[in-house]
């Protein structure tokens, strides 16, 4: 099992700003649809390794990115079949 921090935002503008800022600071971040168990939002949020949540939160605050919530998200590894499709 892998544990992630799911960071949600009020809107996709801040989700993308967060992704950009975190990547600029050398963090591994992925945008994912907002998991239903956390929110009924239509858009997407950011996923980072659980251990990096505090550092990510700090970086985002420093860059005026408004975070809604940070959730703990436990995933069975066999559910993580990412990058199967790529769009060019």
């Amino acid at each position: 099992m892998t544990v992630y921090a799911v960071i949600t935002f009020h809107n996709t503008h801040f989700a993308l700003k967060a992704k950009k800022v975190l990547e600029k600071n050398g963090k591994t971040v992925e945008t994912i649809p907002v998991p239903r168990e956390f929110s009924s939002e239509c858009g997407f949020c950011c996923k980072v390794p659980w251990d990096e949540r505090d550092m990510a939160d700090k970086i985002l605050r420093e860059h005026d990115v408004q975070v809604e919530h940070i959730y703990r998200w436990e995933r069975d590894d066999d559910k993580e079949r990412k990058n199967k499709f790529t769009f060019v």
Binding site: T12, A15, L16, K20, T31, G43, F44, F85, F87
Partner: peptide, 16 residues
């Protein structure tokens, strides 16, 4: 900004 799938994220990136 309406969905979380790859193409929606790409469209949102253009707006951003």
């Amino acid at each position: 900004g309406r969905s979380g799938h790859s193409l929606s994220v790409k469209a949102a990136e253009i707006i951003y």
